[in-house]
Computed example of a mutant assay.
Amino acid sequence: MARATAGFWILTIVAACHAAGPLDGLEPGERGRVVRVVDGDTIVLDTGQSVRLVGIEAPSGGYKEREPQPYYTESKRMMEDMVLGREVQLHYGGLTRDRYDRALAHAQTVDALGPAFWLNAEMVKRGGARVRVYPDTAVANAPLLEFERDARRQEIGLWHSMQYRIPYASDLPETFEGFQLVHGHVVDMQGAEGFGAVCDLALEGSALKLQIQRAAASLCQEAVGHRVLARGYVRGNEMEISDTLNFEFVETPTN
């Protein structure tokens, strides 16, 4: 009986040690050594393959007359410190390439040159990037949201900067364009006007409308009357909500 009990606990411990991780269900991709870090969400391997880490949006660098976004340098250095010169394994959970032929992937370090990192998650935990979800690469993105909430609560990394404090939709300038998180109170659901949208959600005191795409259609009926935290690209007073992970119901908005 004692042997049977001991065997049971050994099997239990082994099973726990091999519990499925968030990336275990993804398709293994290429391996390569990181030879360049473009910014906090883009790396280049020794194979020549550029990799855009999915599920996150790091501050971008300057281009032509466009200035780098706040916290760009710190975010890039954060990634360099973790992974430059190290070998990584890519994992795919949907679309594998974008129009620039960048790999769209989750990445893990697989060498013995330092701690093991899931790079996408680690950048969010350290406040080097915000979560941004696309439907065609949304697999394994959900855990990133909790990591971001923790970073926001502790004001880690970019969340310590006033430029990244989350505004109410009513305080967002009507001329604003770019990726943004906003708090708002959904007061009405209207017919869709944009391409691929199924409805528009109106926010109290704001000209900003949340343009709900087909992959997030359930929000059209669920969101009215609720306070929410929405994230997406803003252009022309519209924010496209392409996945339900880009939309959270909240009762007490906090940064």
Rank of each mutant, 00 (worst) to 15 (best):
H160M: 10
R149P: 04
N120T: 05
L26E: 07
R33S: 12
D46C: 10
V250W: 13
V234Q: 03
R235D: 11
R231H: 11
E240T: 11
P70E: 09
R3T: 11
E174Q: 14
H91Y: 12
A6S: 13
E222F: 12
H160T: 10
P115Q: 06
A230C: 02
G191K: 10
Q180Y: 08
K64D: 12
G48I: 13
V131M: 04
R36K: 14
A105V: 06
T5N: 07
A6R: 12
A138N: 03
K64V: 12
G25I: 02
S50Q: 14
P22Q: 09
Y63K: 14
E146G: 13
T73C: 06
E174L: 08
Y92E: 04
V88R: 00
S50V: 03
D41F: 05
N237T: 11
A138V: 07
D98E: 13
L84M: 14
D200V: 03
Q89P: 00
G114H: 03
E27R: 14
Q190R: 15
E174D: 15
D150M: 13
P28F: 07
A107M: 06
T137W: 09
S60G: 09
R66I: 10
P28C: 09
R77A: 15
R77E: 09
Y63T: 13
C220I: 00
T47N: 08
R153K: 14
Y168T: 08
D200C: 06
I166G: 01
L181H: 08
D24K: 10
D24R: 04
G225W: 08
P167L: 10
G205D: 01
G128T: 07
H160S: 15
D98P: 02
E74C: 06
Q221N: 13
E177G: 08
A15C: 10
R126V: 10
G7Y: 06
D188E: 15
Q211E: 15
V186N: 03
A140W: 01
M1D: 10
M1R: 13
N120F: 03
Y233T: 04
L104S: 00
R149W: 12
T47V: 02
A192C: 01
V34K: 01
L84C: 06
V54P: 01
L172S: 01
A207S: 12
M79T: 12
R153Q: 15
A207C: 00
Y134I: 10
E155Y: 07
F176S: 05
W159F: 02
T254R: 14
F247K: 01
L172Q: 05
P68K: 07
I241F: 01
A20P: 08
H226I: 09
T96R: 15
Y168N: 10
L119W: 03
C199R: 04
D101A: 12
G40I: 09
T244P: 07
G191C: 04
R66H: 11
V44L: 11
L203M: 07
F8N: 11
A16Q: 07
L181E: 01
E80T: 03
E146M: 12
C199T: 06
K209N: 08
I241S: 01
G127E: 07
V37G: 01
G196R: 09
G7H: 03
P173K: 09
A116W: 08
D111L: 05
L113H: 13
